[in-house]
Design a protein around this nucleic acid. Structure first.
Lengths: 348, 348
DNA sequence: CTGTTAGCGCCTTCAC
DNA sequence: GTGAAGGCGCTAACAG
């Protein structure tokens, strides 16, 4: 490394990022005044403020948040864990959350947990090292150590897209069991009796699926088969899923899929086989991913308002940060969902 | 705020995150030895290492990277700017980049620039404040001030998904002009003569479109119309786009779209109007978003290997970071693209 | 191989 | 309304 001391030599060297002290010197005030002018301007006279702002502009000063964070023990960083962002039902949530937080001066650290719990552990450590002010969990945390570490971190945690028992801290989501029940009842009322389920090997998807099966059973429809596909979900997953179901000699009237991506694959496979949807085969998805209806007028789905969840999460966190109450009110919001029936009505 | 001093009182207080000093005390070594054991274990005796690791485990110590970053002037943070992540052609790139960087101990700061250049400015400031070690630009930087700030930040910058003139620093992408030329030539050779373009109001999309028009003109096909839709791209954009084109009384043989999302909308609109694709209307997309072929066997597209770009970016950055050369080799990689023709062959 | 000293850039506390 | 001193947690640089 080249030693470039001699602070005075402001020749044409990249000049090292200017610091608050540089700004103070140029503004002719003390460093702390600069700090205050930038962070709590109400504590500083207008005259001083102007001198400071001028100096900031002149130097192109950008506050070093690493230093600020170290001093205040606040990073203004929120970590959010998601299995993946490609083609993800969480995309809207992440986007909304980031938008809201950015507007309040927070940044987001995205953690892609993927499908390996080992990766997840490492990632958690790495991110905890950044001392985030809050953590949002969109996927499930697979290992117990992870959960423990989270708790010990002593920061707000929001689990989203679910309402499990045993919350770590806050929860903003909906009941996957209820989804299963509502889907089952809805389709049953439409007149469907021969069901097949197609699910990703994913905790929540399976919970929804089991709930569908249980409810159907209560309605008198037994032995509903479920085909489980390995992660990750792609369109091929759906195509192959339908192929398998048909290869088993089943002839369902309706296929309930654990995600829209899979459902779209089913539609593609049906199309390539000349099966008319929904007349010969109805398809139900989940997530209303990318407004699937606009491409597939015949796809019904369970719509979850991902953006709203993101918004609520941001609010909940910001309230926590502003809150003085040492023992904050517990947050547990059921955001609900809605069944969008575009074309499952059975044509008898 | 409740004052919780008296470090000895390790009763059942959340105990404040343990610091390196706590670990050192417990391990019976000096703080710097702990630091070294964790960061450059080769400089520390095995005996000391073991004492340190034991103490780390006992305390659940997680290094504070804010402090570390401040001391080393390295944040191990890479910022990446993308217009949006929902339904984005950059998703694969982001995913691949994050995966590679995470494996090397770097984290990613995602910046969603959206479509407002004002937002972009703020965002840039906020992120520069984190002192990232590198910046990746997937979208275009709209304002000149932004570009200047970037340069003055004095860190590696990688512009991706493009090969414009006047690079800021490194470039990893392909020529959008070349895409236009290749698409034009390809379709012309297939026998198409009546074209319509449908583009988002987006700098690169328009560059591709203009290039298609110019090349077609060179081939003797003139007056190719281009319909420009406002951002953001959704499936509705495509549907409406086709509707407009048809409403103008045009009857193109092929529609060249600026993105797969738009192309999928066109397919949906065509389907709802009973227009057979590709027999009556061929459709060409761009990006090969989420392997569109698997859903739309009749959609041709320009395939870009987004994941590979992400990988190359990570490599380029890591080389820079390891590199001692004060004047590193310039990086400008043409990743190319390929035209995937699934069904544009004209059936005469 | 290990420890000491000093300081990264900022903000808190307390004084004026 | 402003400033001076000290420290946040960690790691360079230099000793030993």
């Amino acid at each position: 490394m080249v030693k470039k001391s001699t602070k005075n030599a402001a020749h044409h060297v990249p000049a090292q990022n200017p610091t608050l002290i540089d700004v103070a010197r140029i503004a002719g005030v003390s460093p702390i005044t600069v700090s205050r002018a930038l962070n709590r301007p109400e504590l500083v006279s207008t005259a001083a403020q102007e001198k400071v702002f001028a100096a900031v502009r002149a130097t192109g000063y950008v506050p070093n948040m690493l230093a600020g964070g170290l001093a205040t023990n606040k990073s203004r960083l929120i970590a959010i864990f998601v299995p993946t962002i490609a083609n993800s039902i969480f995309a809207d949530t992440v986007q909304a959350l980031m938008d809201s937080l950015t507007a309040e001066g927070y940044q987001t650290l995205l953690g892609l947990t993927g499908y390996s719990s080992e990766r997840e552990e490492q990632l958690l450590d790495a991110i905890l090292g950044r001392r985030p002010d809050g953590i949002v969990l969109a996927g499930t945390l697979h290992t117990d150590e992870s959960r423990e570490k989270l708790c010990k971190a002593g920061i707000p945690v929001v689990e989203i897209w679910d309402l499990s028992a045993s919350p770590i801290d806050m929860q903003i989501g909906f009941s996957h069991e209820q989804v299963g029940i509502d889907v089952a009842v809805h389709l049953f009322r439409q007149g469907y009796r021969r069901f097949s389920l197609l699910s990703l090997d994913d905790a929540r998807g399976l919970r929804r699926g089991r709930s569908v099966i249980a409810e159907l059973s209560a309605l008198g429809v037994h032995d509903v088969p479920i085909e489980i596909m390995p992660a990750p979900a792609t369109l091929l997953t759906g195509r192959e899923g339908l192929a398998r179901i048909l290869a088993q000699g089943r002839s369902p009237e309706v296929i309930v899929c654990s995600s829209d991506t899979i459902a779209e694959g089913v539609l593609a496979e049906a199309a390539s086989r000349g099966i008319r949807v929904p007349q010969e085969l109805a398809v139900m998805g989940f997530g209303d991913l990318s407004s699937a209806a606009q491409v597939f007028p015949a796809l019904s789905t369970v719509r979850v308002d991902g953006a709203r969840i993101g918004l609520l999460v941001a609010q909940a966190l910001l309230v926590r940060f502003s809150g003085k109450s040492p023992d904050p009110a517990p947050v547990r919001i059921d955001t609900g969902f809605s069944i969008i029936d575009r074309a499952t009505t059975k044509l008898l």
